[in-house]
């Protein structure tokens, strides 16, 4: 596909998620955590939000998840401004946009069985009841490579990587279009990290899932996301195709990030 064609294709589809000149400041603090951020997430074009601590990555993610309201600008879902009080729209939104967290230890309720954890979006969004949820849960668990009997066990019986698989099963059980992931592999060991990256790539490929990933790990970003936005102190300093942004950085901050990645010898 030539770059021209690709650009045209980009323009014709309505973005699933869109941030339009969004800013957020917390009460009592003068400087905004996020300022003048405009981003678009189109189906099939996974987006990485790259930056270091204090860059505002997590705040952006909360805005994209409808967990926080911007102090300026608009968050749009399927072209409509996201209204956190509009129950009907929020239900559609939650069904279409799910999330995986960084820490697989605190993201699973220790007192619930895995089956109930994975079924939660189905039950809460009214997609299935206790009986009809079971086969969907089993399917979701199988999809992420966990044994069927996992549903009867508790989170503590699983390793970090397996827990992250459970979290991914929960986030994909209601067949969302967008998966927001907050540093989904940074708490995992290297060998496990590769496997979870593979799983996410597979879900992208086979289920047409679009990823929006917050990460500081450029190799993971390069493995999974077509597009990259680089954040520094609450603002986007550079965004575009990942190959271009990371391969030929235009902004000195991006260059510094790329150069800082430790490489294996040889």
């Amino acid at each position: 596909m030539t770059p021209v064609l690709e650009t045209r294709a980009l323009e014709t589809t309505t973005p699933v998620l869109e941030l339009d000149d969004v800013a957020l400041s917390y009460r009592g603090s003068a400087a905004p955590v996020v300022r003048d951020v405009s981003l678009t997430v189109r189906a099939g074009h996974s987006l990485a939000l790259v930056g270091e601590s204090g860059a505002g990555k997590t705040t952006l993610l909360r805005l994209l998840l409808g967990l926080a309201r911007p102090t300026a600008g608009t968050v749009r879902f399927d072209g409509e401004p996201l209204a956190l009080r509009d129950r009907e729209q929020m239900r559609r939104f939650r069904r279409g946009v799910q999330c995986v967290f960084q820490d697989p230890y605190s993201s699973l309720d220790p007192r619930r069985r895995v089956g109930a954890i994975v079924a939660e979006p189905l039950r809460s969004l009214g997609i299935a009841d206790r009986r009809t949820a079971a086969p969907k849960v089993a399917e979701a668990l199988e999809r992420v490579g966990l044994p069927a009997d996992a549903a009867r066990r508790y989170p503590h019986e699983f390793s970090g990587g397996q827990r992250q698989r459970i979290a991914i099963a929960r986030a994909t059980v209601c067949e969302p279009r967008v998966l927001l992931a907050d540093e989904p592999v940074s708490a995992l060991d290297v060998t496990t990290r590769v496997k979870i990256v593979d799983l996410l790539a597979e879900l992208k490929q086979e289920r047409g899932l679009t990823l929006v990933m917050v990460s500081h790990d450029l190799s993971v970003v390069a493995s999974l996301c077509e597009r990259t936005a680089v954040l520094e102190r609450g603002g986007v300093v550079e965004q575009g195709d990942t190959a271009r942004v990371l391969g030929d950085p235009a902004h000195p901050y991006t260059r510094r990030l790329v150069d800082s990645v430790p490489r294996l010898p040889g």
């Binding site: 998840l65 999330c99 960084q102 979006p121 809460s124």
Partner: peptide, 16 residues
């Protein structure tokens, strides 16, 4: 804890 945020993004109401 993150599992509370996860419950919120799963559409679970505050009472539940």
């Amino acid at each position: 804890q993150d599992y509370i945020t996860a419950a919120r993004t799963s559409g679970t109401s505050w009472p539940r």
